[in-house]
């Protein structure tokens, strides 16, 4: 899975489901888009669909440090690469 492809999917989700307006890759999700803990849990469900497998509890907890869209993309890349080993 290419980063560009992941980015396209995540931006679509953030714009369509989370109603982000003009999301920037380094925007602070909470401060600039009102993204909260409820949204984080909902987004993890969407990320599981992109990845095609369920995240473990430990993997989900790692996601709680995410602050930007770039962080989301890094997170997905790392998890995907760990699972492909």
């Amino acid at each position: 899975m290419q980063r560009e492809d992941i980015k396209r999917q995540i931006l679509t989700i953030l714009e369509d489901s989370f109603e982000f307006e003009n999301p920037g890759l380094n925007d602070n999700l909470r401060d600039e888009h009102g993204f909260d803990s409820i949204d984080a849990i909902e987004l993890l469900g969407e990320i599981e669909k992109i990845l095609g497998f369920s995240l473990t509890r430990a993997e989900k907890e790692k996601a709680m440090t995410i602050r930007t869209i770039n962080d989301i993309l890094d997170y997905i890349e790392v998890i995907a690469s760990e699972h492909s080993r």
Binding site: I38, I41, E42, G45, E48, K49, F53, S54
Partner: peptide, 11 residues
């Protein structure tokens, strides 16, 4: 495999 109760369903 991927379905779960949504975080907001309880709220």
């Amino acid at each position: 495999e991927f379905s779960s109760i949504g975080a907001v369903d309880y709220l």
